[in-house]
């Protein structure tokens, strides 16, 4: 079971991962070009932070969609791009945090520390970022082997926690309108539901086969 869940080398869909990387980094390139052309509006730092945060959330939710999509359809390819999507999401989380720390806060460490400890909204985002660090660090095949699949899988469930915190962070940031964060919340809830139903169905099958 473990082996089948690990994406292996370049098979028939060898182009898929490079395509995802290219597509996933394209918005970052667009953002850099817009920044260089002073085309990010009146408040460019806020705009960059919003865009990077949104991209991070979208990619994390997409990476979490891989397994439910495979469960629902039986397709194998979503699993092959799961790690790429997750790492791209982490890339945007890092960029989001760096823009906040370097440009928004001018690397004033005291102010950043005060922000993180005193503002629940910043704290929630920061915890999501921190939770993703071990996941990124153990994203290699080598790390998976060293940890063993069961432990690795347990650790990587933190991706759900990080995504939930990301959405909470989004909810707490908006002045009032919750439509956008609610969309991501609903998507994540749907993905969660598929996984829960899957577990429930498997348990029922198991009991059924034991009786039979």
């Amino acid at each position: 079971m473990a082996a089948s869940e690990i994406p292996r080398g370049a098979g028939k869909l060898g182009w898929l991962s490079p395509a995802i990387v290219t597509g996933g980094l394209a918005p970052a390139v667009v953002l850099v070009i817009r920044a260089a052309r002073r085309d990010l509006g009146a408040n460019p730092i806020a705009e960059a932070m919003n865009q990077l945060g949104l991209l991070a959330l979208v990619l994390l939710v997409l990476s979490l969609a891989a397994t439910p999509l495979q469960i629902a359809t039986g397709w194998k390819w979503p699993i092959r791009i799961r790690k790429t999507l997750g790492l791209l999401g982490f890339f945007y989380v890092c960029a989001h945090f760096l823009v906040y720390a370097v440009l928004d806060q001018s690397l004033a460490l005291g102010a950043i520390a005060a922000d993180i400890t005193k503002r629940p909204f910043i704290l929630v985002g920061f915890v999501a970022f921190v939770l993703l660090v071990p996941l990124a660090a153990t994203s290699t095949a080598k790390a998976l082997k060293r940890m063993g699949f069961a432990r690795w899988k347990r650790l990587h469930r933190l991706a759900y926690v990080a995504a939930i915190l990301g959405i909470v962070h989004f909810v707490m940031r908006v002045k009032k309108d919750l439509t956008e964060p609610a969309i991501y919340g609903a998507l994540l809830g749907g993905l969660f539901l598929i996984r829960i139903m899957d577990v429930a169905l498997k348990r029922r099958d198991k009991r059924g086969s034991m009786r039979g």
Partner: peptide, 19 residues
């Protein structure tokens, strides 16, 4: 007096990088 979700101690003047 901070907003419950963010500090009001600093501001960014539109056009400035630093707060």
């Amino acid at each position: 007096v901070a907003h419950p979700r963010w500090s009001q101690a600093m501001e960014r003047r539109i056009g400035d990088l630093d707060k």
